[in-house]
Design a protein around this nucleic acid. Sequence first.
DNA 1: GGCCAGGACACCA
DNA 2: TGGTGTCATGGC
Length: 225
Amino acid sequence: MHRKLLKLYDDLYAEYGELNWWPAETPFEIVLGAILGQATAWRNVVKAIDNLKSADLMTPDRLGKLPQGELETLILPSGYYRAKAKKVRAFLTHLQAYYNNRLSLLFAQELPTLRKELLSIYGVGEETADSILLYAAKKPIFVVDTYTYRLLKRLGWFSGKYHYGRLQEIFMGNLPHDYQLFNQYHALIVIHGARICQKTPQCERCVLRTQCPTGNESGIYQGSC
DNA sequence: GGCCAGGACACCA
DNA sequence: TGGTGTCATGGC
């Protein structure tokens, strides 16, 4: 599996190159993006983030003082806006209560401790916690998402239903725990999946949905849909 | 008009 | 522990 994972990485890297994720200006923006991005097309998340930026609310201090109703209105384009407003609020409440709104203090902890703490916050599940850990706190942990699941299923490297821990173990149990590697690898998987699916959402030949028409082993669709 | 998008949680058996 | 319903906007 070690070699296969590295081969897949090389194929994706050859296709997309260095990506330098996450697409955000600050760690706080990454946290917000991780929450607002739950089960949502990224273009809609960008609209919500832009609204917050335009209102000059991209700090825990200022956003924490914003009334719930106004927060809901600003993040409306990202969908599930009432539920997400509660989640953002829960994170901000935690950050204020225990770290005086300083992300750097929160992130100063060891990975296992920090992960457990993030998971204890309402609205922060495994993927959101790991996205924050990897991209905002720069900890070496592999982020799993639906694209990861589809790709590994397609490649025949994973069977059964979606299971975060099992999917994560495939990568973390067979690759060096390197921050840069995990960062780039997950970014490549998402860019690959998102590009194809955004281009042709209904395409039956999409490698991440059905069978690859070329039958290539890498799982990278090498034709045009 | 229907499908889908970088999940998490509540509830039930 | 696993399965299902709910949350919701916006692009194609």
